[in-house]
Measured scan of single mutants.
Amino acid sequence: IRCIGVSNRDFVEGMSGGTWVDVVLEHGGCVTVMAQDKPTVDIELVTTTVSNMAEVRSYCYEASISDMASDSRCPTQGEAYLDKQSDTQYVCKRTLVDRGWGNGCGLFGKGSLVTCAKFTCSKKMTGKSIQPENLEYRIMLSVHGSQHSGMIVNDTGYETDENRAKVEVTPNSPRAEATLGGFGSLGLDCEPRTGLDFSDLYYLTMNNKHWLVHKEWFHDIPLPWHAGADTGTPHWNNKEALVEFKDAHAKRQTVVVLGSQEGAVHTALAGALEAEMDGAKGKLFSGHLKCRLKMDKLRLKGVSYSLCTAAFTFTKVPAETLHGTVTVEVQYAGTDGPCKIPVQMAVDMQTLTPVGRLITANPVITESTENSKMMLELDPPFGDSYIVIGVGDKKITHHWHRSGSTIGKAFEATVRGAKRMAVLGDTAWDFGSVGGVFNSLGKGIHQIFGAAFKSLFGGMSWFSQILIGTLLVWLGLNTKNGSISLTCLALGGVMIFLSTAVSA
């Protein structure tokens, strides 16, 4: 259960009878995928790494000078000259100064003066180019299975845990398959586009800190620079940016070097996208990844198990997540596992009318040892309800109150669905055939309105939902006002479609 501690969480529900669903994975976010007769899966884009970055340009932001020398000439005696002028490691300046009897010249006039100092770069920052084909995306998957609280967001041991898996995709191999043991396998067909235009970005490294910066900004930095990788004795261009020549006297000129420019660069980098280094690879934390999940090989585990009949206890007080759902960790005293956990939410304890829904599909106890633990997640209705676990006299209950409203949740879900469709863009549509167009249209309606429909009408039977949709269509056909007619027709059509397409 990876997503319960992530604030940016998206719930995606598969269409009834569908074998695939489109998701948008982004750094700092987590996606929970639910479908009829399929286990619930949490998917998170953990890291995006980039390798084989080529150094484009380096800037010196802290330097020192040494070996200063000057040469001067009297008027009419030609130009002052130093051998160091031809050495690229030196920074030199030529000027004219007033000369006369007082400073060793027989004539009054302008004399030539040249001053040089050896330039040494102490600290530099480097910009590297990123090729999209060198990106690698690491995705962690977790099935809502027989897990306890100690396994949440624990990325170790996934090789031997059938509840978890790690997959890596690249532009050259965008397809992967996550093996989930008894739950089958989940196929991923990803489109490795981060949403960032790397043709316009460089990877900047300064003092063990890293950013993504725009090329134009990078090339306009007014500091000494050299092109390409460091060859040991780089040729620094624009050395004068960190060196200041003071007022010249008759035979000498003082040279000083400016202080470190790291603070000024940090100020200019305010708002830039931060990154990290992992050995020789860069780690990015921006952008998104679009994936199509193929769920035809994914299956529920323990459908044929019998119900657990022994007593359950709450190991922890049920807690609310950031998303309005409830996490419950229970301990089973029996030894008759594997068995299914009898769990439901009810409005009252007399009729036990089921409300809400299970995020953890078909929760089971897989071990036959005593005191096995299991964590599950529920989506309670707004208002008061009861969490009921167990059967008969051994069942345990917990009162729950959820604040908020169904309308607010439906609106929030619609906005999130619209954002998801905007990110998917043209990849969500198939114009290759008439059937493809209608299929894409259905998927689009489901992406945007599916979660809201589930919130508003999830407790009704599909037949009642179709009746309401048919009534809206009838009202649309018999209303003389054009805008009201079109609105009723659209709402009725969407409702009829979703009542037959969205899983219960």
Rank of each mutant, 00 (worst) to 15 (best):
G263L: 05
R252C: 05
L322V: 11
L489T: 14
I468L: 14
Q253L: 02
T76P: 01
V167C: 13
F463P: 03
P338Y: 07
L107H: 07
S485G: 13
P132E: 06
V473M: 15
D336C: 12
T309N: 15
F382Y: 09
C291K: 06
T397W: 00
E168L: 00
I221D: 03
D37Q: 03
L284E: 03
C488M: 15
S70G: 03
A452C: 12
N8K: 09
F497P: 08
M374V: 08
D348A: 01
G5Y: 05
A69C: 14
P338H: 02
L472S: 08
P224A: 06
A176I: 06
S485A: 14
D161F: 13
M345C: 10
A346C: 04
N371I: 03
S72G: 14
K124R: 07
S483Y: 13
A361H: 04
V494L: 15
I496D: 05
R193N: 14
G432W: 07
T487E: 05
D161T: 13
E367I: 01
H398A: 00
E274T: 15
H446L: 09
K251L: 00
H214N: 12
L358M: 01
I341G: 06
R193M: 06
E240M: 15
V24G: 07
V6M: 08
I396G: 00
P75R: 01
M374Y: 02
S70K: 05
W236E: 04
E320L: 02
K301I: 11
T325K: 10
H219G: 00
L284Y: 05
K281R: 15
T76C: 08
G106L: 07
L188A: 04
S440Y: 10
S173V: 02
A422L: 15
G259N: 09
N103H: 06
P354E: 00
K454T: 13
S64N: 15
Q331L: 04
Y332K: 08
V167R: 00
G157K: 13
V12S: 02
G450Y: 09
G127Q: 04
S51I: 05
I496S: 00
C92Q: 11
V347C: 01
D430W: 11
G29I: 00
R99M: 11
A270R: 11
I359T: 12
G425L: 01
T479N: 09
D348T: 14
H249C: 11
G181I: 04
K294R: 07
G442F: 08
V167N: 05
L475F: 15
T470E: 00
I139H: 03
K394N: 12
S464G: 08
L258G: 02
D200T: 00
A490P: 02
K118D: 02
L489Y: 12
A490E: 13
P354K: 13
K395F: 07
D87T: 02
T327K: 08
V24L: 08
N439P: 00
G181F: 02
G232Q: 10
F497C: 09
I387M: 11
W400S: 07
V12Y: 07
G436P: 00
S405M: 07
G29W: 12
T366D: 00
L25A: 03
M295Q: 06
L322I: 14
V256P: 00
F449E: 13
P318R: 01
V91I: 15
M125F: 14
G106Q: 01
H144K: 09
D67Y: 06
Q261E: 09
V91S: 03
A310V: 01
S129T: 09
V423Y: 06
T47F: 00
S122Y: 14
Y90A: 08
A229P: 15
R138L: 14
T321H: 06
R416M: 11
T88C: 04
E133C: 09
C190F: 12
L300F: 02
M495A: 03
P75M: 11
V256G: 10
T335M: 13
Q89A: 15
G404I: 07
G417Y: 08
A501P: 00
A361I: 06
D247N: 05
C60Y: 13
T353M: 12
K166V: 00
S483P: 06
Q253K: 02
L475P: 03
C488A: 10
L289E: 06
T351D: 00
M53N: 04
H235C: 02
D278V: 00
E55Y: 08
L352V: 11
S146E: 01
L471Q: 13
G444M: 13
G436H: 02
D348W: 10
V347A: 06
T335W: 13
G442M: 13
G436N: 10
K301H: 14
E13W: 10
K294L: 01
E13F: 07
A418E: 06
S306E: 00
F431Q: 12
W20R: 10
K283C: 00
T351N: 14
L471M: 12
K394F: 02
N134Y: 11
I365Q: 05
G111T: 02
T47S: 11
G127R: 09
V12R: 01
D83I: 12
M53L: 15
Y90F: 09
V167K: 04
D230H: 08
T414R: 01
Y90K: 10
S464W: 14
T95N: 14
G302R: 01
A310S: 14
I496V: 14
I152M: 03
Q36A: 10
Y332M: 09
V330H: 12
L188I: 15
L188D: 10
S112H: 04
D278R: 06
S66Y: 14
A413D: 00
Q344I: 14
G145E: 05
E44T: 02
C92A: 04
A117I: 04
E44V: 06
L113S: 05
G187S: 01
L212G: 03
L180G: 04
S142Q: 03
T360K: 08
S455T: 14
N134Q: 07
V326H: 04
R164M: 14
V24A: 09
M53Y: 05
E168T: 01
H249V: 05
G195E: 03
L223S: 14
F218Y: 11
T170P: 04
F431K: 04
L180F: 01
V265C: 14
S440V: 04
C105A: 04
T321V: 04
F463K: 00
V473Y: 04
A241I: 12
S149T: 10
V91F: 15
T369S: 12
R57G: 13
D393S: 11
